[in-house]
């Protein structure tokens, strides 16, 4: 059975675990380096990226995570997880330890605070024709992507794009790495989880 680890240091990891289990895969909470053994994929959930970053370092999870991702472990970050996966972030995060796995630049809290949090419909061609209902909670935005990065979704509301200063990329893929600025785990539409599981099954690495 496909086994997906969900980083469980802080945030909405239980929602991801529930989604993974509903799709017939095994979900495992990852809190310490030993929890990484035998995974087919890893999800870094929503939450506070600063908190997850600190706890990752404290319990020596950062380097094993970098190694596993580098070795090809399919990994998906949602919101805070996207920030942790990015190679570069805005100034607010200078000095914060990151996994630096995806060739993207991300701006944290790009829309403002919770007052500016929103839900919207997005076209995600990789998931089919039906638009995806998405929830952004103090969400980030992807400001730029490197040549090996595929853009999976862009904002289509002019008001939102204006709020970020003209940026619109909210879902990206680089090989077996996925990043979304929104939270598919808090809705009942599991197409993004299905998409990630397919990537994990295809890669079939199984970290030992």
């Amino acid at each position: 059975m496909t086994r997906i680890g969900v980083l469980a240091l802080q945030g909405d990891f239980r929602e991801h675990m529930r989604a993974v289990e509903r799709l017939g895969a095994e979900a495992r909470a990852v809190r310490l380096p030993k929890d990484l053994a035998g995974l087919d994929g890893l999800i870094i959930p929503g939450g506070e990226s600063t908190v997850m970053g600190k706890l990752m370092v404290e319990y020596q999870l950062d380097q094993p995570l970098r190694d596993a991702i580098h070795a090809g472990l399919p990994t998906w970050g949602t919101c805070a997880g996207l920030i942790l996966l990015a190679r570069e972030t805005d100034n607010a995060l200078l000095g914060q330890p990151l996994l630096a796995a995806m060739d993207i630049r991300v701006c944290r809290n790009a829309f403002g605070g919770q007052r500016e949090s929103f839900e919207t419909e997005l076209d995600v061609p990789a998931l089919g024709e039906e638009p995806l209902h998405t929830v952004f909670i103090r969400g980030p935005i992807v400001e730029s992507v490197g040549p090996g990065v595929e853009v999976l979704a862009r904002l289509n509301s002019p008001r939102l794009i204006a709020a970020t200063g003209g940026f619109d990329i909210v879902a990206v893929r680089q090989g077996t790495l996925l990043g979304t600025a929104f939270h598919p785990e808090v809705t009942d539409d599991l197409r993004f989880h299905e998409y990630f599981l397919a990537i994990a099954r295809e890669a079939g690495v199984g970290v030992s």
Binding site: L9, Q10, S117, F118, E119, L160, V186
Partner: peptide
């Protein structure tokens, strides 16, 4: 985009869990 609806309000604390 819609701000301030119940779902968006209830999802904010979801991200604070375990903290």
């Amino acid at each position: 985009a819609q701000t301030g609806a119940l779902r968006v309000k209830r999802n904010f604390p979801e991200m604070l869990k375990g903290g």
